[in-house]
């Protein structure tokens, strides 16, 4: 895939899909200003899976919101395909844990939410496809309040994928799930990523999760967040989570953020 890109248009392949350029963010409230992000520069290439990790409250989600255009940065710019981001865009969809599903719409209604430009038959086809992909058959007419946390999470992922975005932004999407569901969801996300090759930016505080999923892990420092280190995860999928290389990479990251790997 990458080779074909190079062959078709060399300049574009050289430019990153997402480029965060000296981004800083300062929150001002009641006359007090708190720096949250400090001079973040980061490039993500097409089809790449990047995880942002860091201590809780460090500003990971703020960074993701700024990348997605939901927050305006104090300084610096975010470029996507060499175009400055000025606001949210349906080509790049956010997934907010399970909190983003609309409680007043059924499963079908939620998945169809972003498909208002399609014809009725196309829309129905698309909805049925994604209902099946995330395994919610039989729940098409159910409201989110009737679903479990894991089902709501899958629903929100399906709603995001249904509009066929180039990029997905996931903000601790599996944080609220139990460990078994979380494990299954990671597998599903990887499967979807491998078939559809979206560019994914994934925020998590779970280092194991990051090492299992990402091509690269971006480690942020405590607030104000700055990039501490970027780690390449050079293990091919499916990943053996008891292999020496996996443990080495994970422990390296744990050490980097100052956590001993013995309890």
């Amino acid at each position: 895939m990458a080779l074909r890109e190079v062959a078709l248009s060399p300049q574009r392949a050289l430019a990153a899909k997402l480029c965060v350029n000296h981004l800083s963010m300062v929150f001002t409230r009641d006359g007090k200003s708190t720096p949250v992000l400090q001079d973040i520069t980061l490039e993500v290439s097409e089809g790449e899976f990047v995880c942002l990790v860091g201590p809780s409250g460090c500003g990971k989600s703020t960074l993701l919101n700024a990348i997605g255009g939901l927050l305006a940065p104090t300084a610096g710019t975010v470029f996507i395909d060499n175009e400055a981001v000025r606001g949210p865009d349906p080509r790049r969809i956010f997934v907010f844990q399970e909190r983003g599903v609309f409680p007043w719409l059924t499963v079908e209604g939620n998945i169809a939410f972003g498909l208002f430009k399609l014809s009725r038959s196309e829309r129905e086809e698309r909805v049925a496809h994604y209902v099946k992909m995330v395994g919610l058959q039989g729940f098409e007419e159910a409201y989110p309040s009737e679903l479990s946390g894991g089902m709501k999470q899958r629903l929100e992922v399906a709603r995001a994928l249904a509009v066929n975005p180039d990029m997905l932004y996931l903000d601790e999407p599996f944080g609220a799930l139990d460990s078994i569901t979380r494990h299954i969801m990671r597998g599903e996300l990887l499967r979807i990523w491998e078939t559809e090759r979206k560019t994914i930016v994934f925020v998590t505080h779970d280092i194991d999760e990051a090492v299992q999923l990402a091509d690269r892990v971006v480690i942020l420092s405590a607030r104000p967040a700055a990039i501490q280190r970027i780690v390449n995860i050079d293990i091919s999928h499916p990943r053996d989570i008891s292999s020496p290389r996996y443990l080495e990479l994970r422990d390296g990251i744990l050490q980097q953020i100052g956590l001993a790997h013995k309890i």
């Binding site: 949210p88 790049r92 956010f94």
Partner: peptide, 29 residues
Amino acid sequence: IPAVYISAGRNFGLRPVDLIFRVLYPSVV
């Protein structure tokens, strides 16, 4: 209205009018 609903609505590229009818209205009813 939880901010996520507005963000999600804007994210899917809703025009302001659609945002009112498809997100704002159902969440306040």
